[in-house]
Design a binder for these strands. Structure first.
Length: 153
DNA sequence: GCCAACGTTGGC
DNA sequence: GCCAACGTTGGC
């Protein structure tokens, strides 16, 4: 089982929105970055996903989800009315993909970015690396262990 | 293929 | 709102 982190702006889609979604499952639409897309294409059903809230008052990891469906074409790329529309994505050769994620849990104690920065063992964690803007990336085992330990407190 | 200009991300 | 960092675009 692989572990991932996916960012979302809670004003747009939050962990609470995932709780409220039908079957507590939602398509992770709107990713328009090739590296993030490529990571989603390698996800497997059952993989763990940390849900991170960005561009908000208190950025941090607020919950966990599970990959519920393998990557498939993101239909919003073909919808001219969507914010995520991409005229250059050909339906016959889709450019953008997404997975479905199913809610697993909200963290009793969120892992706030401001707190995570205090742990030297997370210094090289992708999330905390200078200039990191990637919205989907793998969480390596050592960092997974630290995050699990911290969220268990 | 280079690289300047531009757009986006995201913390603060 | 600011701005650093990064990705993408497009002229050459």
């Amino acid at each position: 089982m692989a572990v991932w982190l996916m960012k979302t702006e809670p004003d747009v889609f939050s962990i609470d929105d995932l709780v409220k979604a039908a079957k507590k499952t939602a398509p992770w639409e709107g990713v328009r970055n090739y590296q993030a897309r490529n990571f989603m294409k390698t996800m497997e059903v059952g993989d763990l996903v940390y849900i991170y809230h960005s561009s908000c008052e208190t950025p941090g990891i607020f919950g966990k989800a599970i990959v519920a469906k393998l990557a498939y074409p993101d239909p919003t790329a073909f919808d001219a009315k969507s914010d995520y529309y991409d005229a250059k994505s050909d339906p016959k050769n889709p450019r953008w993909f997404m997975v479905d994620v199913a809610f697993q849990e909200k963290l009793a104690k969120p892992l706030l970015l401001s707190d995570l920065k205090n742990y030297p063992e997370l210094k090289d964690f992708t999330l905390l690396k200078r200039g990191n803007r990637l919205s989907v990336f793998p969480v390596q085992a050592p960092y997974f262990k630290v995050l699990e330990a911290l969220s268990a407190h």
